[in-house]
Write a protein that binds this DNA or RNA. Sequence first.
DNA 1: ATATGACGAAATTAGAAAACGCGTCAACTA
DNA 2: TAGTTGACGCGTTTTCTAATTTCGTCATAT
Lengths: 237, 237
Amino acid sequence: MSTSAERLRSPQQRAERAVRILDVAADLLLRHGYRRVSIDDVAAGLGIGKGTVYLHWKTREQLFSAVFAREVLHAVDELRQALSQDPRACLLHNFARAYFLAIAKRPLLRGFLLDDPDLLGKLANSVDTARDDRHSAMARDYFGLLADHGILRDDLGVDEIGYAYQALFEGFLRAEGAAPASGQQQRADLLARTIERAFESESAIPETTLHDLAAATITLLGNLIDADRIASGLPEN
Amino acid sequence: MSTSAERLRSPQQRAERAVRILDVAADLLLRHGYRRVSIDDVAAGLGIGKGTVYLHWKTREQLFSAVFAREVLHAVDELRQALSQDPRACLLHNFARAYFLAIAKRPLLRGFLLDDPDLLGKLANSVDTARDDRHSAMARDYFGLLADHGILRDDLGVDEIGYAYQALFEGFLRAEGAAPASGQQQRADLLARTIERAFESESAIPETTLHDLAAATITLLGNLIDADRIASGLPEN
DNA sequence: ATATGACGAAATTAGAAAACGCGTCAACTA
DNA sequence: TAGTTGACGCGTTTTCTAATTTCGTCATAT
């Protein structure tokens, strides 16, 4: 199609092309849904050959998984940035609010958590169990940290809190599918205040403790992000 | 089929037959799923003619809706009984625990709330908006009562609490689909303790207030049950 | 070395035919 | 006459096959 197909030389350029492919794929995915987007469509959208797409991902499913993985990565990265700007963001209720907004704001992730089969197909049903494992391990570690630093109410076990937290969080996300658009910030705040009362201890947290916890949490998130990046073969971005 | 088909005379007998039809329909629904159960199957299960089933419900969909409606009725009635035995059951967290167990214990309702399309088909998507309206009106009234009696935390609006409560409750129900069987009681307790901390005020409730609230709530539930019975044409049972 | 699109294989869709099940009602029983 | 029934018409769903689309590969091209 393109009259002057230039050859790529550096890993640099290769990575940039991968990003551009993901951009187009994400756009098409959002506009037409999983089933109606073919690899040819994606390639055509960039004016490149279909074979070139296959130089980056072995299968169609892996390409679309990568789109999704990148979206998750962005959300988690947004979370990490919030944490590095304000140590108080490591408190569970602030953490939850930021994460909730980071997800709800991204149409592809919203579609996933409302498991819209048209938008993501079987991708919703954990194609990538490895990432799921990493993320739940991260959650466990994070709750462990919270407990160690005396953030959590002490009349409930850590895994009990983790279970209840997740149910609450997913309940809010799911509800977000029905009553969307305006008031999203208010609902995020409501989630935060509910979590604060439900799961956090009432005692004040010393400034130093907060810093320790924030640092440890940032490390945790950093490791998670790195692992996800490596697993999905994505560059920083 | 039956060699001596006796004629039904009283409304009594008619109602009994309706119940038997619902029993068989519920059983088949549970064993084979919505799509695989025909009206003929239900009729055959009772040894009666298909036309007889249509003397009770105008369509197949209405029959299966009635099965579901009766199940809801049983759950709500269980709730009402709990309330009339112990006034403390009207406190939000106890109310939620009892309701959670009443639902989780009933396979058909579980299937509905995990919106298993195989079990209930499009029935899940509110065939009966009227009942939904009645139930959410009841929920609003109940939360109004809780607020009036000083049960709820006062730094949150009633509808905010209602919203968060529902998200939490449905989050727990949904989670119940993944990790079932044993430990159901523990999860119900966890839900209760989470709700207590998240939504209820910390001040002690006087015995008399509790009784008032319990009585009012029982009335509310009674009205709801009556309205549901009339709407679905079911007898007490 | 890198990129491409034509190609065979596999999957999806389209359309026609068969089977099924809903809801009705004329016939039947007591 | 009041109550019950199952055969029947008809719309829906399923099944089967043919045609089309899309996948993923690889020989060719630059």
